[in-house]
Amino acid sequence: MVKRSLWFLVFSLMAVSCLDQPDCFSLNNNIVGISFKRLSNNRADTIGITRIIADGAGVEFVPNDAVQTSVNLPLNLYTNSTTFVVEAGGQMYDLKLDYTSKAQFVSEDCGAKYVITGLRAASQTFDSVRVASSTPKSQDGPGTNIEVFRCPNTSRIKIRFISQVTISKIETGYSDPITGSATPVSTILVPLNTTESQSSVKFTFADGTTKDLVLNYDREFDTLFGACGEQVIISELTVTSHTFTAATVRRKAIQDPNQTNIEITF
């Protein structure tokens, strides 16, 4: 009889020992990790985000760093959709994410939490977007939910100056002028005219001097990636004329990420 009673006592104590309480830290899983990638090689792309506006003008995020390869953004817990407007490189991109947000009671100590599932890109104006994981994260840190792909730029050449120069402005006549900065640079990216086989580029330097560069090339149109549509393919790049000391073609075709096409001695 005593032995039987001891059994019941032991198991009554065990029942109490099974009661454990959850951790109250980072209960909501509303952090979406967005990675920027190049469509050409599936590797990380660097993007200069100025700011990100979420759900209209209600919430604005300004990244700490000038350039990013990824960013973590909080989804709105109280709705089933959040729209982000990303301002990067002078352009605005929209990304509308739909998901299911449901509340769940956790404990008397922790209260309730929101559990987000079924993340998907409802609409977007980036080149291409893929959902890598449909369950967002519970805190900042590594981990990608959304991959944003950029189509390769097939019409922009890289010019390298042998010695650093301070460029005030670059004018082409077929695209918006490129405004330079007070900081000396050794390389710069210049768009080519994709409607013609020749581009004339006028450089204005900080000391007021101007130099001209005329380039000729062959053009073809091809669909490299379905998401990018038909793109111009530049080849056989040549320097037709220039007013620099020297201008030499180093690479006749354009690559993304860019490699030096023209090398200039000022």
Binding site: F8, F11, C18, P22, K102, A103, Q104, F105, V106
Partner: peptide
Amino acid sequence: GQNEMLSHDVPGYGRTDKETAWGFNY
């Protein structure tokens, strides 16, 4: 039928926040 919220507790089962649960009857 968990349409509006996720269940915290199911009668007869207990808390739902883990894959498994223990129960004890005396």
